[in-house]
Design a protein around this nucleic acid. Structure first.
Lengths: 151, 151
DNA sequence: AATTTTAGTTGACAAAGTCAACTTTATTAA
DNA sequence: TTAATAAAGTTGACTTTGTCAACTAAAATT
């Protein structure tokens, strides 16, 4: 297969997977949280404690936009912000119990969503799917070290 | 591996690939056309002649939103709309020469973008990447016949 | 010590997307 | 065959999402 055709194939996959992600994410959006908000909660949850600028570089988002979302999260009691001791410009973010609870709900909904997506697959097919996803991640990450790693 | 872990793996891939698509699409957005607009031009180009409702079901987008984009395309000379003979409610869309030219430009930019993404890969690795993408598409489409097929 | 950079906030704005009401034509069912 | 219903597309009003630049305060650099 020519390089041209391979690239056409990759673009075809990208369109397909955009649809898959759209499907998966839209059902998440039935909650009162946007995709960006869910992703931010995920980052704070997994890191356990991060600064806004960590999130900005991880998710490549606008700092003004993030600042407002974090303010909303704080007002509604999902996160607390603690001034860093090492750097007075920095606030360290962490989830409150309520924040963890909201995260759990979103996390579970997202889990169920994927669960449904693969519910018709035999075990072996699912294994293959996971393997291929892992391989794609590995190949693209190896060739593009700059792509945000480690999920 | 447990089912739970497999689903966690899939979600991890989804986050990763969201980043990949974000990267790829953002550079497209340096043009004066949005992702949605580019995708619409693509649909009209490949189908050669479609109705608005075809695009709506293919891309699952709001018909009001699409209507406005199409109006803009018509005003700026990218498409023409011809009343259908079979159904007077329907307008058939097709690209003008200028529309094809804009499409070509976007298409080429998108091609280059993917080209860069895989530029560091050896031929064999690229072959594997394409193969895995194809397999993922096949597996997911087989298990979810309703996912918008055929790209 | 002066300059530059970084973290975060805020205001103003633009782009993207949603929703419902409406018109016109087609389809379905009584 | 007409009455009700549905589908295609348009439009207005609106919300959400995201961007940009100016700003303050603290840290890093020269």
């Amino acid at each position: 297969m020519s390089l041209e055709k391979k690239i056409v194939q990759i673009r075809s996959f990208n369109r397909f997977y955009t649809d898959v992600l759209g499907l998966v994410n839209n059902n998440l959006l039935d909650s009162e949280y946007s995709l960006a908000e869910a992703r931010i909660l995920y980052e704070i949850f997994t890191a356990r404690t991060v600064s806004a600028s960590d999130i900005i570089s991880k998710l490549s988002m606008d700092k003004g936009y993030l600042s407002r979302i974090l303010k909303k999260f704080e007002r509604s009691g999902l996160i607390i912000r603690k001034a860093s001791k090492e750097d007075a410009r920095v606030y360290l973010l962490s989830l409150t119990d309520q924040g963890k609870s909201v995260f759990d709900t979103l996390n579970h909904a997202s889990y169920q969503q994927i669960s449904r997506l693969v519910s018709n697959m035999a075990e072996q097919q699912l294994d293959e799917l996971v393997k291929y996803m892992h391989e794609i991640t590995r190949l693209l990450q190896k060739a593009n070290k700059h792509i945000t790693g480690s999920h």
